[in-house]
Each structure stands twice: as structure tokens, then as C-alpha cells.
Design a protein around this nucleic acid. Structure first.
Lengths: 207, 207
DNA sequence: ATCATAATTAATAAGTCTATTAAACCATAT
DNA sequence: ATATGGTTTAATAGACTTATTAATTATGAT
């Protein structure tokens, strides 16, 4: 079965598999379903990726890497005040999640399924967070000494930011169907919480 | 196969199934595995619950109900200042999650699998949240008028609390194996975040 | 045009999963 | 002791899963 545009069959399988794995998780997605969604024979999925685990891990690791590269990117942070840096981090983290709202749950479920995988991810992350952490830690100390920020550990700021942002994207779909929000109201809520999460973190820093 | 103590076989199946569903999710848990873990014949699982869906929903709905009954319980809140009420809500919500750390992910995954189930849950919740919300909303208005609390909506306080607490229990296990925390360090971190989550919320309320 | 190689398919092995059925087992009331 | 009804098991149907193999088709180089 020829694929219309220039996109290779291998790529088509990857993309469709990614979509299905994100939608329904690893266990509930079969290679047969992937093949059907792509419009190819089921054996072809195994021809390119040999095993379902292989296919999943290929997708998972590349998504994971891409996601955290962006999370720990420090290039935009120069020439900002400390609180502006924090604001920027909250907002870009929020926006990154808005583009990948199902990544956190995928990661949680996958690591529950294959705890050994954690070692691989630790190696993948490796030095990524270090630059950001050392940069922010240094500045945080100065701010605290100058009395502009409450005495606090940077890790607590990070935990707070990640919690607020991740929880929003994992829970809002559920919450909004329970309390029956329209598409419109959901969008409004999202935009509102984007700024509110910044507010929460910044009030937390006030001396 | 006779079960030792007085516990009935039906109950044993329920408890084992609950444990396995929480550990590995619906799709990755088979009735065969449940039976093996209980130590009975696989057909017995179907004898008592007819279908796997049935078994799961029985467990899910009872867990769900119990959990939210406790969440929305207002009996402990009398004769407290507003900020003490908030502190108490954060802490009891935290403690409830500490006892049921896998409930949030179970709910998220299950509702992704069976979106229709949401209607059932909405009916189950029904008036549960109303008492708490009306109580707190009334008091919040008074506090705002008195200038003791920043102008804010109660729903934003709730979202903040739930986000901070839920995210901690869903993410900490992953995070702590990535950064390799000992059991001891994890416990310390938990206790620390319990108070820190209170701090975050209370600073958020300051005018 | 033909040959080699890559892509794709059909067929199928081997296994697991859910669910059902009929038979065996066990306790208890008569 | 035995008939009865609830409990438990063995056996199995039927669907679906992953993965492999061999055969077919398409592609590109010579």
C-alpha cells in the first residue's frame, strides 16, 4: 500500500503509533490496530520495529528527550530579573505541556510498567538539568541575601511549578467533563490558570 | 481451595483485584492473574463478578465514592479561622492521598478508557461538594471584604491545592527513582512538602 | 531488460485473554 | 444418609495478540 505524499511508511507508522499510544496507552494499543490505522499490513509494523516494545521505546525515548531538552533550555533566560526568569519558566513549561498534554501520564504509566526504564531515562537526562539548576541556585542565593525573596530552596520552587502545571493538564479534561465546561470555558480556564500559576509561584517567593 | 481465615472468597478476589488494578491498570491485569494471586480458579472470578468490567467498576466506584466523601467532609472544619480551615483542607487532602497514592492515576486512566463513565461519577458526586463550596465561598467573601485575603475565587484555591497535592504523589515516586532518593529521604521530602504545600497556598491568599 | 534488494503482504504458529459450561465438591437441613 | 444449593474446578470455545516466515510486489542500478 503506497503512501500518498512523500512521507515514508516507517514515519507513518511512528506517527500513528505515537498518537495511539498517547490516546490509549501501551497495553491497550495492538500492533494490529496501529497497522489498521496506518493502512498497512500488520507484519510491516514488526518489519520496521521488530517488536511492539521496540516501537514504543523508540517513540517514548525521543518524545521524552525532546520534551526535557525544551524544559531545561536556558537560552531565553538571559538579561531577566530573577522573578521574570521564574515567570518565564512557569509560562514556557505551561506552554510546552499545552502542546504535549498527554506526555506526563504516558511517562507515569510507562515507568510503572517498566521500572528498569528509569535508568535509561536518567542517563538520557544526564547533565541536562545542571546548567539551569546552577544558574538559578546562584541567583536565588543573591536574591535571598538581598531580602527580595523568602529563604527557600530552589527545588521547592521547581516542585511547585511542575505540580501546578502538570496537574492542570492531566486533571482539567476530567474535571471539565465532570462539571461540564464548554470548549470555550475550558480555553478561558486554561488561559486564566496560566497566569494564576505564575501568581501562585510568585506569591510563594515573597519574603 | 478453602481460604484460611473467615474472609470470604468474594472479598479476597475484590481486595486482590483492587491491588492489581491499582498497580498495573485495567488493561494489563487479567482475570487469570487475579485468580492466581488470590489462589483460586479463574472461573471463580467470573462466577462472582461475571465480567472483568463488572469487577473493575465495582471496585472503582466504591473507591471513588469513599475517596470523595472524605475529601468533601466538612465536619472537622467548625470553629476554625479561614486560614486554619484552608490549612486543614490541604493537610487532610494530603493525608488522604498518602493513603491512596494511586487513586488519581487510576481515575485518569479509567476515564480515558471509558469516557461514558464520567456521567456515572457525576451522579455519584452529585451534591457532595456543594456544602463545602458554599461554606467556604461565604467565608472567603467576608475575608476579602475585611482585607485579610487577596481578591480571589475559591475555585482557584481548590485547583491550587489539588494540583500541589495530587502531583506530588503521582510524580514523586518517579522523580525519586530518577534522582535516586533513599526511602528515608523520600519520607523526609514528603513531610517537608506537606507543610510546604500549605505555605504555598497560604502565601497565595495574602493580600 | 534484468537482476538484486527493499518493501509489503498473506498465512500462520503459539500464546493469552475473557467468558461459559458442565461436572465435582462441600456444607447443611431434613 | 441424603438431597439440595451454593461454591469451586477443569475444560474449552472463540477472539485477539505478538511475532515469524515465506511468498509477492515494487524499486533502482547496471
Amino acid at each position: 500500500m503506497k503512501i500518498k505524499n512523500e512521507q515514508s511508511m516507517e514515519q507513518a507508522i511512528l506517527e500513528t503509533a505515537e498518537r495511539l499510544f498517547l490516546e490509549k496507552g501501551f497495553a491497550s494499543t495492538s500492533t494490529t490496530q496501529i497497522a489498521k490505522a496506518v493502512g498497512c499490513n500488520q507484519a510491516l509494523v514488526h518489519y520496521y520495529f521488530r517488536t511492539k516494545d521496540n516501537l514504543f521505546n523508540t517513540i517514548f525515548e525521543s518524545k521524552f528527550k525532546l520534551f526535557f531538552q525544551k524544559v531545561f533550555d536556558t537560552t531565553q533566560l538571559e538579561n531577566m530579573s530573577f522573578t521574570d526568569k521564574i515567570k518565564h519558566i512557569v509560562e514556557t513549561h505551561f506552554d510546552l505541556l499545552a502542546e504535549n498534554p498527554k506526555i506526563p501520564i504516558l511517562i507515569l504509566n510507562e515507568l510503572a510498567r517498566q521500572p528498569e526504564q528509569i535508568k535509561v531515562l536518567r542517563d538520557k537526562l544526564h547533565t541536562l538539568p545542571e546548567k539551569l539548576f546552577s544558574l538559578m541556585n546562584r541567583e536565588l542565593e543573591l536574591e535571598i541575601e538581598a531580602g527580595r525573596i523568602k529563604k527557600i530552596q530552589f527545588v521547592d520552587i521547581v516542585v511547585t511549578i511542575v505540580s501546578l502545571n502538570v496537574a492542570l493538564f492531566t486533571m482539567l479534561p476530567v474535571a471539565s467533563s465532570v462539571i461540564q465546561l464548554t470548549e470555550e470555558q475550558q480555553k478561558f480556564m486554561m488561559a486564566h490558570r496560566r497566569s494564576e500559576n505564575v501568581n501562585v509561584v510568585l506569591s510563594y517567593l515573597k519574603p
